[in-house]
Amino acid sequence: MTELKKGYVQIYTGNGKGKTTAAVGLAVRAAGNEYNVYMVQFLKGSSTGELKSAEKLAPYFNIFRFEKKRGFFWTLNDEEKAELKLEIQKAYDFCCTVLKERKCDILIMDEVMGALHNNLITEEQLLQLIDLKPENMELILTGRNVPSEIAAKADLITEMKDIKHYFDIGVPAREGIEY
């Protein structure tokens, strides 16, 4: 089993396509080198290709979800939002435990910035979580609109920038390509 000597905090952000895809690409590479990767997905309840891929890369790549399937955040009523917030808190607590107990080599918190911007977790919580990262563990955060204090704690930030996108001409998300 390979072990990281030094782990960093990486952030994949921006309005462009590819944040989750970049994180999954890193996970596939790491799993191929026998690193243990956990990906916790926030605000994602439907079936996606990465779930199927992770099954094939087990035990090295595991995806965890804590939310039940429901619509987009902006379509939820207050009761559904409260329920979602509890589920997000369980996911956050799981991530804290993973870091404290170093249960993997690489922890990916996919779309955690979306959870932050929808007030499902706080910036303070995310800053505290980053501080829990062991020296020999990688932490990857994805999502748009990274607050400056969180950005300051990162070692690497990659911004995905929309230059041209077929969504703009009405092409819907495609299975195997966007999800």
Rank of each mutant, 00 (worst) to 15 (best):
E135R: 08
K103H: 05
Q41P: 12
V37I: 13
L84I: 09
F42L: 11
N15I: 05
K164N: 12
Y8L: 14
E34D: 14
L127V: 08
E3F: 12
M1E: 15
P134Y: 08
D162L: 12
L139I: 14
I11S: 08
G176A: 04
L84P: 01
S46P: 01
K153A: 07
L57R: 10
T158R: 09
K90F: 09
T97K: 13
A91T: 10
K100V: 10
E101N: 13
E67L: 01
D168K: 14
G16A: 03
F42E: 11
T2W: 11
R174K: 14
V9C: 01
E34H: 14
T48M: 10
G143M: 06
D162M: 14
K44T: 08
F94V: 04
E34Y: 15
E149T: 14
L116D: 07
A54H: 05
E87G: 03
Q89E: 15
K85F: 12
G7P: 02
M113E: 02
F72M: 10
L86S: 14
I130E: 05
E111R: 11
S148L: 13
D168Q: 13
E149G: 10
V98D: 00
R102P: 09
D93L: 08
G114R: 07
E138I: 06
P172V: 13
M1S: 15
N77A: 01
R65I: 10
E149I: 07
G71E: 10
I88E: 04
